[in-house]
């Protein structure tokens, strides 16, 4: 018993070691910085946004950004066709994008890990059925599947998140299963099994913590992918519905102004790119930091 507990508890130097590897990757630190800024903006949106995201100023329709001709200082990034401040909408939009990422990752990690653990631990028929099911999901292009799912469930943010979680699921299942299968036969697992640890304890307390590293990396990737997918669905008109200031939805709404008002098209896309890029940079750093550990275990 005692042996398993020392095994699961992180060594005191863990965090420091992690930070040592992570901070060696300058890009990752930059990504973390940007991400923190976006996160703060999202949390403090009501305080930092110069306007309400839904406030319409009918005297200021499609105003260009401040640095372009005709721009006004109150609307730094200009206004949209009903006179809402684009900057404020982008700031509020960050809430949606981060929220989407968080929900999708939580949903798919939790369910994916559960299913993957079961498949990898028990093997046999359960495993076969689960893996066939995952094959079925993987047989469709993810975006197409998400699109059809949302069409079935009805367009909207919540349904988009469910759909994206579902199409993300197989990656986590496969990853967990593969790691569990490697760990399953290792000495420490067999040891605790012999020591009389129950199935659940073995699965969650013994094996799972040792499979976390690749999962964390995959979760980071899924986080950014979820933001992209949700934006794509929004762009196709199947994600968050207007007037929600979700970035992809803003892009879809702005599409008709592509000729006349470049700023309504450019800024939401840029916001998506920067956020996704920051998270991916972090993901690279995480992988570098967690990789040496993986090799040693």
């Amino acid at each position: 018993m005692a042996a398993t507990e020392t095994k699961t508890a992180a060594p005191p130097s863990g965090l420091a070691e992690f930070w040592f590897y992570f901070s060696r990757n300058r890009g990752a630190v930059l990504g973390l910085g940007i991400f923190l800024v976006i996160l703060c903006l999202a949390i403090a949106a009501p305080l930092v946004a110069p306007h309400s995201p839904s406030e319409q100023n009918r005297a200021a329709l499609l105003l260009p950004p401040v640095f372009a001709k005709g721009g006004q200082l109150t609307y730094l990034m200009g206004t949209d066709p009903v006179g809402r401040d684009i900057l404020s909408r982008l700031i509020y939009g960050a809430r949606f994008s981060l929220f989407i990422g968080l929900v999708v990752v939580s949903l798919s990690v939790i369910s994916g890990v559960l299913v993957g653990l079961v498949a990898g631990y028990f093997r046999g028929r359960v495993d076969t059925v689960i893996m066939r099911l995952m094959d079925i999901v993987l047989a469709f292009p993810s975006l197409l599947l998400a699109l059809v799912l949302v069409a079935v469930l009805g367009p909207g943010l919540v349904n988009a998140m469910i759909a994206i979680s579902l199409v993300n699921l197989p990656h986590f299942v496969r990853l967990t299963r593969a790691s569990v299968m490697t760990e399953r036969t290792k000495d420490y697992v067999i040891g605790s099994q012999v020591a009389g640890a129950g199935t659940l304890r073995l699965m969650f307390m013994t094996i799972l913590p040792n499979c976390l590293a690749p999962l964390i990396v995959q979760a980071t990737l899924a986080f950014s992918a979820a933001i992209l997918d949700a934006a794509a669905l929004g762009f196709l008109g199947m994600g968050a519905q207007p007037p929600t200031p979700e970035w992809g939805t803003m892009l879809a709404e702005a599409r008709e102004f592509i000729q006349r008002a470049w700023w309504v098209v450019t800024f939401p896309g840029l916001a998506i790119l920067i956020t996704v890029l920051a998270i991916n940079l972090m993901g690279d750093g995480l992988r570098d930091a967690l990789d040496p550990k993986l090799k040693r275990s």
Binding site: L62, P81, E256, F257, Q259, R260, A261
Partner: peptide
């Protein structure tokens, strides 16, 4: 055409 493009 998009209403927004007509002027252009």
């Amino acid at each position: 055409p998009n209403a927004a493009d007509v002027d252009e």
